[in-house]
Design a protein around this nucleic acid. Structure first.
Length: 340
RNA sequence: GCGCAGGUGGCAGAGCGGUCAAUUGCACGAGACUGUAAAUCUCGCGCCUUCGGGCUACGGGGGUUCGAAUCCCUCCCUGCGCA
């Protein structure tokens, strides 16, 4: 079977991924699959920089002979007339996980392919992107709350020793000071009664992996600062208040990180408005650094510095792909109808 | 001008005769990442190094001592109180 194309657009916070993606998707008959661990949540809009799309009913009228489509009358998140998937669909009260994301994204991609369109995987969550792009297999052990509580009582050193006994191979590779990882590894071992399986992964797609990142750190910093100011001015605090009112505990908000963590602290009177701005700007920058570290490691990435360059890359990539779909112009016509 | 309290690495802030290139936190830098990933975690952080060590350092200068960031004198600066 032929591999289907997948265009990835990755980059740190505030690098302009979303807008670029929409432009490219429009131009190349694409649809967007978001790869953002926070934009999946409903009600988290301003703080995540979610595009201001709407949930619309969509009729996919596919006129493509290769496709036996199945999606009819589905609701789709649409922004600037481009469909977005894996976004704005889960309750923030719940803890969403990579595997769930993986299923959602893989499904969306298959669906987009089935309709003869090009999927654009766009986001800043490296781990999520990797899970999809390499179809990583995760051990099928869902989080065991009770077990975790028990393990949580042990010291980090104890956990490490335990893991060393049960699974030396995993122990060798793991970050031995990271309790969260140790606990998960042990959890897998206890449930499956076997060592943690080796990771296997293989790309099921033809990839074009694009990276966006401002040439200069100073530019990125400025963009972060500017964006933050806008968020704070346009209801960021109210959004967090609203989430809390709807039942998100402070603890949960803290876990959600960045804006959600620090605005919640501000609301609880733990810092002044001014201090909030300062810390957040710093924290977001640090986060961007972590993202960059992740993507730096990804050797398949091609850095693009402008919209033009990105367009060119996509054009060349798609023209090389020999699926027939793109050449014969059998592109699906899609209509989005407003849902009340 | 007098009295008191201080001046330590980018900042905050320990140390108060040797084991101090100097606890710690923050900032900064690098990195990890097998169902929380905006999370979680690690390492580095005066200068040089053949990684043994070497050099310059705790406001400036001078002293005491085998030895000072730590004690004394003096100068400069800062904060508080009195003028």
């Amino acid at each position: 079977m032929l591999k289907q194309p997948l265009v990835i657009i990755a980059g740190p916070n505030a690098s302009g991924k979303s807008e670029l993606a929409v432009k490219l998707a429009k131009k190349f008959n694409g649809e967007i699959v978001s790869a953002d661990s926070r934009q999946v949540y409903k009600g988290m809009d301003i703080g995540t920089g979610k595009v201001s799309g709407k949930w619309l009913r969509v009729q996919h009228s596919v006129s493509n002979i290769f496709v036996r489509h199945r999606v009819l009358n589905k609701r789709v998140f649409v922004y600037k007339n481009v469909a977005h998937y894996c976004i704005d669909f889960v309750s923030p009260k719940r803890r969403f996980t990579v595997t769930e994301y993986q299923k959602c994204a893989a499904g969306a991609i298959a669906d987009i392919h089935a309709r003869g369109k090009v999927p654009f995987l766009v986001g800043g969550t490296g781990f999520y992107i990797k899970a999809v792009v390499d179809a990583t297999t995760f051990p099928t052990v869902p989080p065991q709350i009770k077990l975790r509580k028990k393990l949580e009582k042990k010291t980090t050193a104890q956990l490490a020793t335990l893991l060393k006994q049960k699974d030396p191979r995993r122990w060798r590779g793991i970050d031995r000071k990271n309790r969260r990882r140790l606990i998960r590894a042990l959890e897998i071992i206890y449930v499956t009664r076997k060592p943690v399986p080796k990771h296997d992964s293989a790309t099921p797609y033809h990839l074009l992996y694009l990276g966006v990142r401002p040439e200069d750190d100073a530019v990125l910093k400025m963009r972060i600062a500017k964006r933050l100011r806008q968020r704070l001015q346009s209801g960021m605090v109210a959004e967090v208040r609203q989430l809390h009112k709807k039942g998100l505990s402070w603890r949960r908000l803290d876990e959600l990180g960045l804006e959600y963590r620090y605005v919640a602290q501000y609301i609880r009177g733990k810092c002044t408005r001014k201090a909030l701005g300062v810390t957040l700007e710093k924290e977001i920058w640090q986060y961007a650094r972590r993202q960059i570290t992740w993507f730096r490691k990804e050797k398949r990435i091609r850095l693009v510095h402008s919209e033009k360059e990105a367009e060119k890359q996509v054009a060349v990539f798609l023209s090389k792909i020999n699926t027939g779909i793109l050449q014969n112009g059998g592109l699906a016509a899609v209509k989005y109808n407003r849902v009340v």
